[in-house]
Design a binder for these strands. Structure first.
Length: 273
DNA sequence: CCGAATTCCTGTTGGC
DNA sequence: TGCCAACAGGAATTCG
């Protein structure tokens, strides 16, 4: 499940290898994955375009194609592989971009949740989904006051931190780790979280995410041979996937519960409120 | 308007 | 051993 650190790792691995390449052909095996849904339009707009840069925003990958943008979301299991014309079609290959130099970029996604969307450059920031996105953990505009204001809700703090319109990039793994770091119980109502704890959430988000990027993300239930998905942060996890194991801080067994349908791990002693 | 539940999808896991 | 329901979850959509 790629979250911000995994997506950033993919971007860093991919950008130098696709930069300045020009799309010559596209094969799509699963139509619902592309926007616009029309294969003819999708192809017509992309073919002939050159990759001028690759960026990331939250969990989105942005391919700058000079005058338009290809916006990719990996969702749960999206992965990129590089190959050439002789590379056989993979089992879960859904989209293949062939470049004029003969190399190919393959999009692989077991659960078919990912999306590839064409956007106008001018419309990117002013339309869905970017118009509703919050701040990156590293953004200086992400202040305790801003966060406190966003927490005026009855929802649980974990649910709110997963909401991409507030803080960008946290998914189910890192939100558990951030809440452990900030010593807040995932089920605590957002409106009960103090300004001081907001400061802590922000500091912990920056700390956890930057450390995870340094280590190339986490490899949980993931293959290790695709681009960028061979991280080591899974060895740094304090609570996620550690049900029944002892807290490194206080030796209390880690608990697992459900929060809004999501598997949630926490230490009942370190995270009291 | 708000928040919870459902939906998309398929490989893996656990119970019987 | 084999079968099958339950499970995993980001974000859009539907429901109450």
């Amino acid at each position: 499940m790629p979250e911000l650190p995994e997506v950033e790792t993919v971007r860093r691995g991919l950008e130098p290898r696709v930069l300045n390449k020009t799309i010559q052909a596209i094969t799509v095996h699963y139509l619902p994955m592309i926007r616009p849904l029309s294969l003819d339009v999708f192809k017509a707009r992309l073919i002939g375009k050159t990759i001028a840069a690759m960026r990331r925003r939250g969990k989105y990958l942005v391919f700058d194609l000079s005058d338009i943008i290809l916006l990719v979301h990996l969702r749960m299991e999206g992965k990129f592989y590089l190959g050439d014309e002789t590379t056989p079609k993979m089992t879960h290959e859904h989209i293949r971009y062939t470049f004029t130099d003969g190399s190919v970029l393959i999009y692989h996604d077991v659960r078919k949740f990912g999306t590839h969307t064409i956007k106008e450059v001018d419309a990117l920031e002013t339309t869905h989904p970017f118009i509703n996105l919050g701040y990156e953990p590293s953004d200086i505009r992400l202040t305790a006051t801003y966060l406190k204001n966003k927490l005026k809700t009855d929802r649980k703090i974990k649910t709110v931190l997963l909401d991409q319109s507030i803080i960008l990039g946290l998914g189910n793994i890192y939100v558990d780790e951030v809440l452990f770091c900030a010593k807040i119980r995932p089920t605590t109502r957002a409106k009960r979280v103090s300004l001081k704890k907001c400061r802590s959430i922000i500091a912990c988000s920056q700390k956890v995410i930057s450390k995870a990027i340094q280590l190339g993300g986490s490899s949980i239930r993931s293959y290790t041979d695709s681009l960028g998905i061979s991280g080591l942060f899974q060895n740094e996890l304090n609570v996620h996937m550690r049900e029944g194991e002892l807290c490194y801080t206080c030796q209390t067994p880690i608990k697992k519960i459900k929060v809004n349908g999501r598997g949630t791990y926490y230490c009942s002693k370190c995270q009291q409120y």
